[in-house]
Design a binder for these strands. Structure first.
Lengths: 165, 165
DNA sequence: CAGTGTTATGTTATATTGTATCATTACTAG
DNA sequence: CTAGTAATGATACAATATAACATAACACTG
């Protein structure tokens, strides 16, 4: 596994988080994180398994990938995009997480995403409504199921299934 | 299939929408809509199939249910909750849809939901950010993956898997 | 009303995503 | 060292979703 400097920094952050929270950043977990980081796009657990097995010499099965992704999500190192069943590295693994409710724009056609930065006033106003509705705002995550401009244009020009890069 | 008065009204609305949009509200489609309406809770395509086959004498297969749900979603009579892979009847089938971006609070534990009414100013402010980010706001749908109060309490009291009704 | 194109549904098979379960290995504390 | 816990391996299976092709219902035209 070739690691960029950025990836090494990310692993450092991950290690310190694990240390603080009394968790183990095992080799396998670190590898999963690195692979996910290098992919730099949302992938399913199965896709991640494939890439892992191409990049890392000790092979892994999807069951383990699920478990490790669950773990990494639980300590907030990765996000699970529930609307498309895919995973990405959390910004805060690379020192950029705002630690408020994340807001993902998700293209339901090509599955590209954008992590939107929302004004704090916005979030707090929301939180109140959420709490009033009998739900928990803390630790929640928003996803807007939408279309990116490219897919929108493709649909208009009647070429469905036309996946851009 | 016993139909309540409310269900009949809903079917009437559905029929008029289909008429306007040049679509057919076939018997099967109507049945799917009625069953989903009576259930009054988010269900998967497979769950819907089961209930359908209990309530309607002519049996259906899940493949058809998927197709019909897709259709009903396309003309905005049902919502697909992508974060939990379940479907519900859209409010506007019962004359209450605001026709802006719907916002669903979704409990990731028990899968109960709440359709939040959001202030219009809110939505428009959002839409702008979404458009600026290169996504399409029209026709989008928001889901907040969260926990309802009951599940939150259950988790705190260390009884995971404890599904309330 | 027959013929033809289109839409909807039936049917079967299969792909994709996610969990349950139990065995084994690795680490941790006494 | 060893007993207990945490992590992973391995196998099976459940749940969700789509592909592909056949048949049926409808709708338009001549």
């Amino acid at each position: 596994m070739m690691s960029t400097a950025a990836a090494k920094d990310m692993v450092k952050v991950a290690r310190s988080i694990c240390d603080k929270t009394g968790n183990r950043l095992t080799e396998t977990r670190q590898h999963v994180l690195e692979v996910l980081y290098e992919l730099n796009t949302p992938v399913s657990a199965y896709e991640l398994t494939e890439h892992y097995n191409l990049l890392i010499d000790s092979p892994i099965k999807t069951m383990s990938v699920y478990r490790i992704l669950d773990f990494l999500e639980s300590i907030r190192l990765v996000h699970r995009l529930r609307s498309i069943n895919k995973y990405i590295v959390c910004n805060h693994s690379i020192g950029a997480c705002h630690h408020t409710t994340p807001f993902f724009l998700v293209c339901r056609s090509c599955h590209c995403i954008k992590d939107l930065e929302i004004a704090t006033e916005f979030i707090t106003a929301f939180s109140q409504q959420v709490d009033e509705a009998g739900f928990v705002s803390a630790g929640s995550q928003m996803e807007l199921s939408s279309l990116c401009n490219i897919c929108q244009q493709n649909l208009e020009s009647n070429s469905p299934g036309d996946i851009h890069d």
